[in-house]
Design a protein around this nucleic acid. Sequence first.
DNA 1: TACTCGATCGGA
DNA 2: CCGATCGAGTAA
Length: 179
Amino acid sequence: MKATVAPEVFQQKKPVALARWLIGRHLVRRLTDGATEARMILETEAYVGERDLACHARAGRTARTEVMYGAGGVWYVYLCYGIHEMLNLVVGPRDWPAAVLIRGVEGASGPGRVTKTLAIDRSLNRAAADEASGLWIEDRGVRVPRGKILATPRIGIDYAGPVWAAKPWRFVLAGSARL
DNA sequence: TACTCGATCGGA
DNA sequence: CCGATCGAGTAA
């Protein structure tokens, strides 16, 4: 079983639920030589709207965050620490900024490693999550029991303050990453 | 235009 | 524990 996930799925106003649901789905990349590589998603984080002080959209609409204000189903890729490309999937309806950070896939733990491993960079920013862009999500029928998905606070966002830093919006397939 | 600080990682 | 490395956001 293999099915590209339709963009509408990511337009639901449920970033946290979508972040959890993405665990067990596959991130699929088509390389320049035409070959495709699919890796199961093992770790994600949800960033939820302008109120969420950990979310880039806390600053409102800017050149960088504009992509998050579009309808879900497109990629938001940005450079972090001047070194690492971070891959996010924009989620939620139009004018409601939210995204899910892909923090880990099979064989690559950590957001910077995910992008490096799959040759993902800012050229994919604002691109649709479909086969035409060369990077998309598939549901290959893997069933992940709810109890196998752990929820923890998000990583590296202490600047957001104790309330937002404590939100359990990071999801990890049990045993696939450190807590 | 100047300055600050990262949704991280690898090496000491 | 620390340095790398650069662009977005903010203040001026």
